[in-house]
């Protein structure tokens, strides 16, 4: 017994190391997926508070460029409204304003923390469950999609960025109906890859990639990026497209959390079908 105690005392640093090492490993394995804990992430209110204060300062950087982007987007939307109005007048059909437009709503939120440097990047927003943000909602800014909400606390939420090797988002070439899944390879914050696109889909460099609308998080047609190049995938039946992302992840500020009013219904139905 005395020998045993002496053994532990003599090697105590090693056992301290072992203890903390095991705790770290446990955290690493337990929370290294979509299911993060609120306490051990930047949705933790104390940590979000620090980011919030720093975000107040950093949000002023790059305002000029953001303004420019917003103006462009504004112009584009105005044009779209004109076209739609015209169609409405032509068709006189009251149905046009139903489903697809009113099904979605959004919450405007500010990015208070963002990273692009890791393999698994996350974004912290200053809106949480109190404002109606829920896990699984899509997030986009004026240029394109940003990610999907993963953790929500009362006033803050953490978003899995598109720049996260764990996230896959369904997307398609604008104008076609074939879809692939958008993944990030962990290298540059400017590019992602659209995998599993069938070989016979026609596309050209410079074509726009938009969300497919098949996942419950995003409506159809939100901009994702532009085709930059392509390569064959290992099994030859699919293309992998290199996509230049529309959203500038190095300079995120105001984003929209997209509320799909029928998301719960869709997910419940899909789950029931899978069972």
């Amino acid at each position: 017994m005395r020998n045993l105690i002496q053994f532990f005392v003599r090697n105590s640093p090693f056992f301290v190391f072992l203890l903390y090492g095991l705790i770290s490993l446990f955290l690493l394995i337990r929370f290294n997926s979509y299911h993060q804990s609120v306490f051990f992430s930047s949705a933790n209110s104390a940590i979000a508070e620090v980011y919030s204060v720093a975000g107040n300062v950093t949000s002023y950087f790059g305002l000029k460029q953001i303004n420019q982007d917003l103006l462009e987007r504004n112009g584009y939307l105005e044009k779209e409204i004109l076209v739609l109005k015209e169609q409405l007048r032509d068709q006189r059909s009251g149905d046009l304003m139903n489903d697809s437009i009113t099904k979605y709503d959004f919450i405007v939120a500010q990015v208070i923390n963002n990273s692009v440097t890791q393999l698994k990047n996350y974004i912290t927003l200053n809106k949480g469950s109190k404002e109606g943000v829920k896990v699984g909602m899509g997030v986009a800014d004026q240029n394109g999609i940003i990610g999907i909400v993963s953790v929500v606390s009362e006033h803050y939420s953490v978003v899995i960025s598109v720049l996260n090797t764990k996230l896959r988002i369904s997307a398609k070439v604008k104008g076609s109906d074939y879809f692939g899944s958008l993944v990030w390879d962990g290298h540059s914050s400017l590019y992602a890859t659209l995998e599993e696109l069938p070989r016979h889909v026609e596309f050209a460099k410079g074509d726009t990639i938009v969300t497919s609308g098949y996942s419950a998080a995003f409506p159809e047609g939100l901009p994702v990026g532009v085709i930059e190049g392509y390569s064959k995938q290992s099994n030859d039946n699919f293309y992998a497209l290199k996509i230049a992302l529309s959203a500038d992840f190095n300079r995120l500020n105001d984003v929209r959390v997209i509320i799909n009013k029928e998301q719960e219904e869709q997910l419940a139905l899909e789950k029931a079908a899978a069972n």
Binding site: G21, L27, L28, S41, T124
Partner: peptide, 20 residues
């Protein structure tokens, strides 16, 4: 640091190791 970076365990394990 991990809690700030949303990487539970990553920095903790590395800095436990380097502390040892």
């Amino acid at each position: 640091i991990d809690m700030f970076c949303n990487t539970p365990g990553m920095h903790a394990l590395a800095s436990t190791f380097i502390g040892f």
